[in-house]
């Protein structure tokens, strides 16, 4: 927080626009979590721990729709569209490239809105996050959500039996992206 950077570069402004778009998006993740049946029954400490550990991954899933994989562009929540080539020249080029790659793979699973919501709930409620106090309660909720997701996917993708497995394999992939990128620096005008 005590670091200050040169504000004169254009890349700074683009990066700031991306940073600011996180605030409403993070708040929406918090509101979403509170509506997951059973989430509010967890201790507030565990609710906060799950959110702090999992929100980046949820944003990766949610932001997937902002990427146009064919055109290689990203539309920020402000509505402005940038090419991946331009973004790659900024400090966090690798982050955008990873997000685009992830979006491409997620899109091939062709999930509908309900499946996506349930998948996001599974991403968020993971008992193996650090700092969880009441493991049993989080595990029980996680099991319920995974069973619900499995049932929904099996019903909707009866002809594509590997969809659920492919979706579960996205979880370690997201974890890895979180580990690589959550320490990226964001800049804010102050």
């Amino acid at each position: 927080p005590s670091l200050y950077v040169d504000p004169s570069q254009r890349s700074q402004e683009i990066w700031e626009e991306f940073s600011l778009s996180f605030i409403p998006a993070v708040r929406e993740v918090v509101e979403f979590a509170k509506r997951i049946p059973g989430f509010r029954d967890l201790s507030e400490y565990d609710q906060v721990s799950l959110l702090k550990n999992g929100t980046f991954e949820v944003l990766m899933v949610r932001f997937a729709s902002l990427f146009d994989v064919a055109e290689r562009t990203v539309t920020f929540l402000t509505g402005k569209c940038y090419s991946l080539e331009l973004l790659r020249s900024l400090r966090a080029g690798q982050l955008f490239t990873s997000m685009c790659d992830f979006s491409e793979k997620l899109a091939t699973l062709q999930l509908d809105k309900d499946e996506m919501s349930l998948f996001i709930a599974v991403v968020l409620v993971s008992a193996d996050r650090s700092g969880i106090q009441d493991l049993k309660s989080v595990e029980a909720l996680q099991d319920t959500l995974i069973r619900a997701l499995r049932s929904l996917i099996m019903t909707n993708h009866a002809n594509e039996t590997t969809t659920f497995t492919k979706l579960l394999l996205k979880l370690p992939e997201l974890r890895s992206l979180n580990n690589i990128h959550s320490e990226e620096l964001l800049a804010f005008k102050v």
Binding site: P1, P7, S19, R27, V30, V48, K52, L59, E183, V190
Partner: peptide, 25 residues
């Protein structure tokens, strides 16, 4: 003149979540 503060993505997310829970208490 404009100055910029730098935070990590993880810190930023954590900060917004803490604020949100504090606001609703």
């Amino acid at each position: 003149p404009k100055t910029h503060r730098v935070m990590t993505l993880a810190d930023h997310i954590s900060h917004i979540i803490t604020q949100d829970f504090a606001r609703n208490q």
